[in-house]
Amino acid sequence: MKTEDVIFKGTGHGIWIILPYDEDFVRLKNKLVAKLEGTNGFFAGATRGILDIGELNLEEDDIRELVGIIESFGISVSRVAGGIEDSFPAIAGERGRKGIFREVGGKLSGRRGPIRKKRQPSIPKGEAMLVGRTLRSGQRITGPENVVLLGDINPGAEVVAGGNIIVVGSLRGVAHAGVPNNLNAVVVALKFMPTQLRIADLIARPPDDEHKVPGSPEVARVKNGRIVIEAYSGWKPELEEEPT
């Protein structure tokens, strides 16, 4: 993604500070300072700043200088993302925080999103959107985090969620959980007969010759890089630990 200006994005994982593609480092610094001044200290005190250098090819010292600028405005940088080089020495990590890692674009969208994370062995909790109706053909709802639907998803309807999708009813349409790249997201439905199922950038569809009507609730999740559907009974969610 190549932009003109520095972009701030608040996500559940922290504040992303996305740098534009600018080969002139001085101009880049000025843009960053101007943007930070424009926030009037709004983000001061934030502890989870993430500096996304995108496709910029920066020296270690340059990154350190940029991190210094951001921190002088009261935002502490926990991570640096992006970059051309495969391995950076830990810069933010020097201050006892997480090191730098490289993030990879998804297969489905091909876009660079600000909430790319490495796989963690837990299901994210957080906000849930509650929808109390049946989704009919052509209707589509999207939720930034979890979506709980008290009703059916008919063929031709679609639910897209950043986190998990729970359908208290029949899932006959398309469910897309974990957008854009949360492979820990799950889809649960009382009657599981989706047209198509997507988790992060994986896509699955039922076999063409199978027309079974499920008797009991089922759950779909990613196992060894593939979407698998299992009986809900006997499945234990591994939820994220409570924040302390």
Partner: peptide, 8 residues
Amino acid sequence: LGLENRIV
């Protein structure tokens, strides 16, 4: 055509 489940 029976291709509904292949639409991305």
